[in-house]
Design a protein around this nucleic acid. Structure first.
Length: 457
RNA sequence: GUGGAUGUAGCUCAGCUGGUUAGAGUACUGGAUUGUGGUUCCAGAUGUCGCCGGUUCGAACCCGGUCAUCCACCCCA
């Protein structure tokens, strides 16, 4: 056999069953976005590389898919640059476009570019694929869909709360038990300020994150190795040892952070969100989680992450507040907040839990057996009536053996088969067979339409 | 980017410390049943055993390389 065709690593085909299931997820999410007043936009698959580079940290830049310039992409390069430039850097010299890495940065670009046509606060949703040159793994793809909702142009914490309600409503509608984790960058900034290491936020949050994996001693050793002073580590220790419920944690931190203005501000925000929750509870569990740092470096306030309570897979939804994302595109002082649902991981979770609803509304309801040219021609006008009545129906294209046509209906799980042969044509009726029971009845075309319309509703 | 595992029929997998013609289930095709599917029975087709090389009288099996896939770390949706 010749080499089988294949698709690039980390990408997938979707068959009709998978599409029905994916659309169930997209439809559920879209419907909820709309009821909260968000409007749809789309942006191109590719952006100028300059819009993408530097927005996701050093790691992110490496994971960008770059698109080779068309035409003679090395025309402007002299031999020396071509040789001397390290491979990693050569990319930007021969590629000026790249595939989008997420939907938030293109959205920021969109807002800046169309600022005069947008009424702020602008609430939009966007459901499109994104691409990352990551190494594929369980729950990690190189092409996957994000479903983003963002509000831009408002500082109000009501937006954060609204997003929490949306997250809750979506996962409830999908029938999934989840935990919404909540943190605030300002609280993290406050902690590093208090211990006197304001520039070491990343090292410290990574250390906090590893706490339950490798234990206190190893975390302390690692911090020491990273060059944190003993004094700072000592000061950090109470935070690492912090335990208990959200409210005891918040009480502890309000004492701990009281010398840090930014820390207290963050704490107040977290407190306010939990206040909203108290008055308007949601189904999902909501946890204050200091270990949540999130890699995307544009977040400045609240950070969200949603994890499945039932299946172990990375986060299935995440997001946060970014105060100055549009600043990098030249529009200062516009604050935004948003979250992104990972449709592909949600799919994996639903699949594993077998929670997909058994839905087959739009599938073919009725198949006409093809007995030959005359019969087929006669059936075409009946089909037209059925279809204009909203009944999905089809005629088997070839006049092959009946057994084969029945087997086709069976495989497609088409619930009804109609037989119209010479006999029926003469009598002006249709023999309708219900596949599941095997029952057959003779109906006029009008009765047929009525019978099947009732069956659908 | 670092580490580990696995590649045999369309799919899921057997294949004995290396032995001659590589199997099962399922799916597929035809028939039992020429206007009736899902069950049953009968028959049939299907493989460079991922690829390249080495060891051997002999390799799906052992060794080396390579590619692909999966898993963990990292990062995240």
């Amino acid at each position: 056999m010749a080499d089988k065709p294949s698709i690039p690593k980390g990408t997938r085909d979707f068959n009709p069953l998978e599409m029905a299931r994916r659309n169930f997820i997209f439809d559920t999410i879209r419907k909820i976005f709309k009821t909260y007043g968000y409007l749809p936009i789309e942006t191109p698959a590719m952006e100028n590389l300059s819009s993408l580079m530097g927005k996701y940290g050093e790691e992110g830049d490496k994971l960008l898919f770059k698109i080779l310039n068309s035409g003679d992409f090395k025309a402007k390069l002299d031999a020396e640059t071509l040789h001397e430039t390290p491979a990693g850097r050569l990319g930007v010299l021969i590629a000026e476009k790249g595939l989008r890495y997420d939907l938030t940065v293109p959205f920021a670009r969109f807002v800046v570019q169309h600022r005069n046509d947008i009424a702020f606060p602008f609430k939009r949703y966007q459901i499109q694929p994104v691409w990352r040159a990551d190494r594929p793994q369980r729950g990690r793809y190189r092409e996957f869909y994000q479903c983003d909702v963002d509000v831009i142009g408002s500082h109000s914490l009501l937006n954060e709360f609204e997003l929490m309600q949306i997250m809750d409503e979506v996962f409830t509608a999908l029938g999934l038990k989840v935990v919404i984790k909540l943190n605030n960058r300002k609280v993290l900034a406050g902690i590093v300020e208090v211990i006197g290491e304001p520039d070491r936020m990343i090292d410290i949050t990574v250390a906090i994150d590893k706490l339950d994996k490798i234990g206190m001693e190893k975390v302390l050793a690692e911090l020491d190795q990273k060059g944190l002073s003993k004094q700072s580590v000592e000061k950090l220790k109470p935070v690492l040892e912090m335990e208990g419920t959200t409210s005891t944690k918040l009480t502890f931190l309000s004492g701990y952070l009281n010398q840090s203005e930014i820390g207290m501000e963050g704490l107040m925000e977290v407190d306010k969100l939990f206040g909203f929750l108290k008055d308007h509870p949601v189904d999902a569990a909501v946890e204050f989680d200091l270990t949540l740092a999130r890699g995307l470096n544009y977040y400045t306030g609240t950070i969200f992450e949603v994890k499945s309570d039932e299946v172990q897979i990375g986060s299935i939804c995440g997001g946060g507040r970014y105060d100055n994302l549009t600043g990098i595109f030249g529009l200062e002082g516009v604050s935004g907040v948003g979250v992104s649902f990972g449709a592909d991981r949600i799919y994996d979770v639903l699949l594993q839990l077998e929670r997909f609803p058994q839905e087959r509304e739009m599938d073919t309801q009725l198949l006409f057996v093809n007995f030959g040219e005359n019969e087929a021609n006669y059936i075409l006008s009946i089909l037209r009536r059925l279809r204009s009545g909203g009944i999905a129906s089809e005629l088997y294209p070839d006049p092959v053996k009946m057994k084969k046509q029945m087997a086709y209906a069976n495989n497609r799980k088409i619930p009804f088969v109609a037989l119209v042969g010479e006999q029926e044509m003469q009598d002006g009726v249709i023999t309708l067979k219900e596949m599941e029971t095997g029952n057959q009845e003779r109906l006029t075309p009008a009765e047929l339409v009525e019978r099947l319309s009732n069956n659908i509703s």
